[in-house]
Design a protein around this nucleic acid. Sequence first.
DNA 1: ATGGTCGCGAGGCGA
Length: 267
Amino acid sequence: MKIATWNVNSLRARADRVEDWLRRTDVDVLAIQETKCKDENFPWELFENNDYEVAHFGFSQWNGVAIASRVGLEAVERTFAAQPAFGKGGKDPAQEARAIGATCGGVRIWSLYVPNGRGLQDEHMPYKLEWLRQLQENATGWLADEPTAQIALMGDWNIAPLDEDVWDIDFFVENEMTHVSAPERAAFNAFVEAGFADVVRPHTPGPGVYTYWDYTQLRFPKKEGMRIDFTLASPALAERVETAWIDREERKGKGASDHAPVVVELR
DNA sequence: ATGGTCGCGAGGCGA
Protein backbone atom coordinates (compact mmCIF):
# COMPACT_ATOMS: atom_id res chain seq x y z
CA MET A 1 0.00 0.00 0.00
CA LYS A 2 1.16 3.50 -0.90
CA ILE A 3 0.01 6.55 1.08
CA ALA A 4 0.85 10.19 0.40
CA THR A 5 0.33 13.73 1.64
CA TRP A 6 0.25 16.89 -0.45
CA ASN A 7 -0.57 20.52 0.25
CA VAL A 8 -1.95 21.34 -3.19
CA ASN A 9 -2.58 25.05 -2.52
CA SER A 10 -5.99 25.07 -4.21
CA LEU A 11 -7.41 21.86 -5.58
CA ARG A 12 -9.35 23.59 -8.34
CA ALA A 13 -6.30 25.42 -9.67
CA ARG A 14 -4.32 22.16 -9.46
CA ALA A 15 -6.96 19.69 -10.70
CA ASP A 16 -5.10 18.63 -13.86
CA ARG A 17 -1.82 18.35 -12.02
CA VAL A 18 -3.38 16.30 -9.25
CA GLU A 19 -5.06 13.95 -11.73
CA ASP A 20 -1.84 13.45 -13.71
CA TRP A 21 0.06 12.88 -10.48
CA LEU A 22 -2.43 10.31 -9.15
CA ARG A 23 -2.25 8.33 -12.40
CA ARG A 24 1.51 8.53 -12.55
CA THR A 25 2.21 7.81 -8.89
CA ASP A 26 -0.48 5.22 -8.30
CA VAL A 27 -1.00 5.91 -4.60
CA ASP A 28 -3.76 4.16 -2.66
CA VAL A 29 -4.43 7.04 -0.30
CA LEU A 30 -3.79 10.77 -0.70
CA ALA A 31 -4.16 13.20 2.20
CA ILE A 32 -4.75 16.66 0.74
CA GLN A 33 -4.35 20.07 2.38
CA GLU A 34 -5.47 23.53 1.26
CA THR A 35 -8.29 22.52 -1.04
CA LYS A 36 -9.32 26.18 -0.71
CA CYS A 37 -12.95 25.49 -1.55
CA LYS A 38 -16.31 24.45 -0.20
CA ASP A 39 -18.08 21.22 -1.10
CA GLU A 40 -20.08 22.80 -3.93
CA ASN A 41 -16.85 23.73 -5.73
CA PHE A 42 -14.97 20.52 -4.95
CA PRO A 43 -13.85 18.53 -8.03
CA TRP A 44 -15.60 15.29 -7.03
CA GLU A 45 -15.41 13.87 -10.56
CA LEU A 46 -11.64 14.08 -10.58
CA PHE A 47 -11.56 11.36 -7.94
CA GLU A 48 -14.58 9.39 -9.19
CA ASN A 49 -13.09 9.18 -12.66
CA ASN A 50 -9.95 7.66 -11.21
CA ASP A 51 -11.68 5.20 -8.88
CA TYR A 52 -10.99 7.01 -5.62
CA GLU A 53 -13.49 7.61 -2.89
CA VAL A 54 -13.01 11.03 -1.35
CA ALA A 55 -14.05 12.85 1.81
CA HIS A 56 -13.72 16.63 2.04
CA PHE A 57 -13.85 19.15 4.87
CA GLY A 58 -13.94 22.74 3.62
CA PHE A 59 -16.39 25.57 3.93
CA SER A 60 -14.66 28.66 2.49
CA GLN A 61 -11.74 29.74 0.36
CA TRP A 62 -9.46 29.16 3.33
CA ASN A 63 -7.79 25.94 4.45
CA GLY A 64 -9.73 22.79 3.48
CA VAL A 65 -8.56 19.19 3.86
CA ALA A 66 -9.50 15.96 2.13
CA ILE A 67 -8.68 12.27 1.96
CA ALA A 68 -8.89 10.28 -1.27
CA SER A 69 -8.68 6.50 -1.09
CA ARG A 70 -9.12 3.45 -3.27
CA VAL A 71 -8.72 1.02 -0.35
CA GLY A 72 -11.84 2.07 1.54
CA LEU A 73 -12.85 5.23 3.36
CA GLU A 74 -14.59 4.63 6.65
CA ALA A 75 -15.38 6.41 9.90
CA VAL A 76 -14.76 9.90 8.54
CA GLU A 77 -14.20 12.53 11.23
CA ARG A 78 -14.08 16.26 10.63
CA THR A 79 -12.01 18.06 13.30
CA PHE A 80 -10.50 16.25 16.27
CA ALA A 81 -11.90 16.41 19.79
CA ALA A 82 -11.54 19.85 21.37
CA GLN A 83 -9.89 21.27 18.26
CA PRO A 84 -9.25 24.95 19.03
CA ALA A 85 -11.02 27.65 17.02
CA PHE A 86 -9.51 30.96 15.91
CA GLY A 87 -10.86 34.50 15.98
CA LYS A 88 -8.69 37.33 14.70
CA GLY A 89 -8.61 40.59 16.62
CA GLY A 90 -11.17 39.63 19.23
CA LYS A 91 -13.71 38.31 16.75
CA ASP A 92 -15.73 35.29 17.83
CA PRO A 93 -13.51 32.23 17.46
CA ALA A 94 -14.56 30.01 14.56
CA GLN A 95 -13.68 26.42 13.78
CA GLU A 96 -11.41 25.96 10.76
CA ALA A 97 -11.21 23.14 8.20
CA ARG A 98 -7.79 21.85 9.15
CA ALA A 99 -8.23 18.21 10.11
CA ILE A 100 -10.04 15.23 8.61
CA GLY A 101 -9.62 11.59 9.57
CA ALA A 102 -10.66 8.35 7.88
CA THR A 103 -9.81 4.68 8.03
CA CYS A 104 -8.36 3.47 4.73
CA GLY A 105 -7.21 -0.10 4.26
CA GLY A 106 -6.89 -0.57 8.00
CA VAL A 107 -4.85 2.59 8.53
CA ARG A 108 -6.26 5.55 10.41
CA ILE A 109 -5.28 8.49 8.18
CA TRP A 110 -5.38 12.10 9.33
CA SER A 111 -4.95 14.90 6.81
CA LEU A 112 -3.71 17.88 8.80
CA TYR A 113 -3.16 21.51 7.97
CA VAL A 114 -1.46 22.95 11.05
CA PRO A 115 -2.01 26.71 11.59
CA ASN A 116 0.85 28.79 10.22
CA GLY A 117 1.52 30.96 13.25
CA ARG A 118 2.13 34.05 11.07
CA GLY A 119 4.61 35.65 13.46
CA LEU A 120 6.33 34.85 16.74
CA GLN A 121 4.31 37.59 18.46
CA ASP A 122 1.15 37.12 16.40
CA GLU A 123 -2.05 35.91 18.05
CA HIS A 124 -2.01 33.11 15.50
CA MET A 125 1.03 31.57 17.23
CA PRO A 126 -0.64 30.62 20.55
CA TYR A 127 -3.48 29.25 18.43
CA LYS A 128 -0.99 27.10 16.51
CA LEU A 129 0.62 25.80 19.69
CA GLU A 130 -2.68 25.03 21.39
CA TRP A 131 -3.99 23.37 18.24
CA LEU A 132 -0.94 21.09 18.21
CA ARG A 133 -1.22 20.40 21.93
CA GLN A 134 -4.83 19.31 21.59
CA LEU A 135 -4.05 17.13 18.60
CA GLN A 136 -1.17 15.52 20.46
CA GLU A 137 -3.43 14.88 23.43
CA ASN A 138 -5.88 13.11 21.13
CA ALA A 139 -3.14 11.13 19.40
CA THR A 140 -1.68 10.02 22.73
CA GLY A 141 -5.15 8.81 23.72
CA TRP A 142 -5.62 6.86 20.49
CA LEU A 143 -2.38 4.98 21.12
CA ALA A 144 -3.23 4.37 24.77
CA ASP A 145 -6.60 2.92 23.75
CA GLU A 146 -5.05 0.69 21.09
CA PRO A 147 -1.24 0.35 21.22
CA THR A 148 -1.20 -1.65 17.97
CA ALA A 149 -3.26 0.90 16.03
CA GLN A 150 -1.93 1.90 12.63
CA ILE A 151 -2.18 5.68 12.57
CA ALA A 152 -0.71 8.15 10.07
CA LEU A 153 -0.65 11.84 11.00
CA MET A 154 0.01 13.35 7.60
CA GLY A 155 0.12 16.88 6.37
CA ASP A 156 1.56 20.35 6.39
CA TRP A 157 2.88 20.81 9.91
CA ASN A 158 4.27 24.31 9.31
CA ILE A 159 7.26 23.42 11.50
CA ALA A 160 10.88 22.77 10.55
CA PRO A 161 12.07 20.48 13.38
CA LEU A 162 15.80 20.66 12.58
CA ASP A 163 18.07 23.53 11.62
CA GLU A 164 18.88 21.71 8.38
CA ASP A 165 15.18 21.73 7.50
CA VAL A 166 15.45 25.33 6.31
CA TRP A 167 17.82 26.71 3.73
CA ASP A 168 19.53 29.12 6.12
CA ILE A 169 18.81 28.80 9.83
CA ASP A 170 20.72 32.01 10.60
CA PHE A 171 18.44 33.93 8.25
CA PHE A 172 15.39 32.52 10.01
CA VAL A 173 16.64 33.27 13.50
CA GLU A 174 17.93 36.77 12.68
CA ASN A 175 14.59 37.69 11.11
CA GLU A 176 12.59 36.15 13.97
CA MET A 177 10.75 33.91 11.56
CA THR A 178 8.23 31.26 12.50
CA HIS A 179 8.52 27.48 11.94
CA VAL A 180 11.88 27.15 13.69
CA SER A 181 11.19 28.53 17.18
CA ALA A 182 11.69 26.43 20.31
CA PRO A 183 7.99 26.27 21.25
CA GLU A 184 7.01 25.14 17.75
CA ARG A 185 9.69 22.47 17.74
CA ALA A 186 8.68 21.33 21.21
CA ALA A 187 5.09 20.99 20.02
CA PHE A 188 6.26 18.80 17.16
CA ASN A 189 8.60 16.73 19.31
CA ALA A 190 5.78 16.00 21.74
CA PHE A 191 4.31 13.74 19.06
CA VAL A 192 7.59 11.90 18.70
CA GLU A 193 7.77 11.47 22.47
CA ALA A 194 4.22 10.10 22.36
CA GLY A 195 5.41 7.34 20.02
CA PHE A 196 4.84 8.80 16.56
CA ALA A 197 7.86 8.63 14.27
CA ASP A 198 8.78 10.68 11.22
CA VAL A 199 8.95 7.77 8.78
CA VAL A 200 10.10 9.84 5.81
CA ARG A 201 13.32 11.42 7.05
CA PRO A 202 15.25 8.13 7.37
CA HIS A 203 14.64 7.55 3.65
CA THR A 204 15.24 11.16 2.60
CA PRO A 205 18.15 12.42 4.72
CA GLY A 206 19.19 16.08 4.58
CA PRO A 207 20.66 18.58 4.50
CA GLY A 208 19.11 20.34 1.55
CA VAL A 209 16.05 18.09 1.38
CA TYR A 210 12.81 20.03 1.46
CA THR A 211 9.06 19.70 0.83
CA TYR A 212 8.19 23.38 0.32
CA TRP A 213 9.65 26.28 -1.59
CA ASP A 214 8.18 29.80 -1.44
CA TYR A 215 6.87 31.12 -4.75
CA THR A 216 8.79 34.36 -4.25
CA GLN A 217 12.51 35.12 -4.48
CA LEU A 218 13.22 32.25 -6.90
CA ARG A 219 13.36 29.95 -3.91
CA PHE A 220 12.89 26.75 -5.90
CA PRO A 221 15.58 27.26 -8.58
CA LYS A 222 17.89 28.48 -5.82
CA LYS A 223 17.16 25.31 -3.84
CA GLU A 224 16.03 27.39 -0.86
CA GLY A 225 13.22 25.41 0.70
CA MET A 226 11.85 24.05 3.96
CA ARG A 227 10.98 20.58 5.19
CA ILE A 228 7.58 21.13 6.80
CA ASP A 229 5.38 18.33 5.43
CA PHE A 230 5.56 15.15 7.49
CA THR A 231 4.05 11.76 8.05
CA LEU A 232 4.20 10.74 11.69
CA ALA A 233 3.42 7.04 12.12
CA SER A 234 2.34 5.04 15.14
CA PRO A 235 4.71 2.18 16.08
CA ALA A 236 2.65 -0.50 14.32
CA LEU A 237 2.51 1.53 11.13
CA ALA A 238 6.16 2.60 11.27
CA GLU A 239 7.11 -1.09 11.23
CA ARG A 240 5.41 -1.45 7.86
CA VAL A 241 7.28 1.36 6.12
CA GLU A 242 9.37 0.05 3.27
CA THR A 243 10.49 3.35 1.76
CA ALA A 244 9.48 6.98 1.41
CA TRP A 245 10.24 9.81 -0.96
CA ILE A 246 9.56 13.46 -1.71
CA ASP A 247 8.38 14.14 -5.25
CA ARG A 248 10.46 17.23 -5.90
CA GLU A 249 9.79 16.94 -9.65
CA GLU A 250 6.17 17.91 -9.02
CA ARG A 251 7.31 21.34 -7.78
CA LYS A 252 8.71 22.13 -11.24
CA GLY A 253 7.10 24.06 -14.05
CA LYS A 254 4.11 26.34 -14.49
CA GLY A 255 1.13 25.69 -12.28
CA ALA A 256 2.93 23.78 -9.52
CA SER A 257 1.89 23.92 -5.88
CA ASP A 258 4.51 25.43 -3.61
CA HIS A 259 4.58 22.08 -1.76
CA ALA A 260 5.82 18.75 -3.11
CA PRO A 261 3.91 15.51 -2.50
CA VAL A 262 5.43 13.12 0.05
CA VAL A 263 4.91 9.38 -0.48
CA VAL A 264 5.24 6.51 2.02
CA GLU A 265 5.30 2.93 0.76
CA LEU A 266 4.10 0.22 3.14
CA ARG A 267 4.78 -3.51 3.15
C1' DA B 1 15.73 33.21 -14.87
C1' DT B 2 19.14 40.95 -14.72
C1' DG B 3 13.29 39.24 -12.67
C1' DG B 4 10.96 39.10 -8.36
C1' DT B 5 4.40 34.70 -6.24
C1' DC B 6 0.18 32.65 -6.01
C1' DG B 7 -5.07 31.82 -5.29
C1' DC B 8 -9.43 33.52 -4.35
C1' DG B 9 -12.51 36.65 -5.85
C1' DA B 10 -13.11 41.16 -6.98
C1' DG B 11 -10.03 44.32 -2.43
C1' DG B 12 -7.09 42.55 0.48
C1' DC B 13 -5.78 38.53 3.01
C1' DG B 14 -3.21 34.49 3.79
C1' DA B 15 0.84 31.79 2.93
